[in-house]
Design a protein around this nucleic acid. Structure first.
Ligand code: MN
Ligand code: MN
Ligand code: ZN
Ligand code: ZN
Lengths: 141, 141
DNA sequence: AAATAAACGCAATAACGTTGCAATGATTTT
DNA sequence: AAAATCATTGCAACGTTATTGCGTTTATTT
């Protein structure tokens, strides 16, 4: 299972035209294995003891993966970025996220596509939308 | 005009059961005079030279005002809080915000009420929604 | 005017993320 | 297989936003 993700991750990285380093592969594998959007810290914790990366390296790898559209970043009111792998659905379609106000977990609401346009004042140009539903997750409610 | 806001601010503060300090009054006045949501820094800049408050005091005053529902905080992808006075419309109705991706200005889309509920996975409980439309403002587009 | 508790200012601290630069290592070329 | 190349890494320092502790000040009540 995880080995498969690992290979998949490596291929995705190569196809994006970047160097397939152990770090990048591992990070992307972790994100592919995860269903929720997780923080930099959480990714760090999921890295095996045998492969601890520097904080900075992790940040840079994530930035690179996001730039290649292999993952996306989710903003949040706690000022912490969360990262999530781009499944087929995600990559070219905007979607909403849910954040638990108690345990802070963030999930993708993949089945919640957002209309592309939105009524704005005159002269304003629409680019994208960021939507976070807040509440209690199943465990916390 | 501004003196009126000043009185209004003072009254709102007293009605909320807090001490009407010069700082709080001034801060709320500034937010009442502003149509966009502005940052801590921007509020600081709008304070008169004769009344420069400590950063911490400003943060605490804003927190207090938000707790009393006289203002609301807007989260953003630049990790900076923006603050906006609660007009009648705002206080009891959720609304969306717009952020310019070029000049970073944030405005309230007051006329864009959001449905109270939202379809969530089983077991999840809805509390509130945070919606930011991003794009270019009239000046930047 | 005195008493009281809330609010303030200052300094230190926390958290998240970024930048510069020399060392390393993945990939290509020979 | 070895050498060359340059993207990537690790480390240390830095930047920004926001928070906490604590002694002092001040708005409000008595
Ligand atoms: Mn997502
Ligand atoms: Mn608003
Ligand atoms: Zn939860
Ligand atoms: Zn703009």
């Amino acid at each position: 299972m995880f080995i498969k993700l690992h290979r998949n991750a490596e291929e995705l990285i190569r196809l994006s035209g970047g160097r397939a380093t152990v770090g990048r592969i591992r990070i992307l594998s972790i994100l592919l294995a995860e269903q929720q959007a997780i923080t930099h810290r959480e990714i760090e914790q999921r890295l095996p003891q045998t492969l601890q990366l520097d904080r900075v390296t992790l940040y840079r790898a994530l930035e690179w993966l996001a730039g290649k559209n292999l993952i996306h970043k989710v903003t949040s009111d706690d000022r912490v970025w969360r990262y999530h792998a781009n499944r087929e659905l995600h990559s070219h379609q905007q979607h909403a996220h849910f954040k638990c106000t108690r345990c802070a977990q963030v999930i993708c609401l993949s089945d919640l596509p957002i209309e592309r346009s939105w009524p704005l004042p005159i002269g304003y140009r629409f680019q994208e939308i960021e939507l976070t539903v807040k509440g209690l997750c199943a465990d916390c409610s």
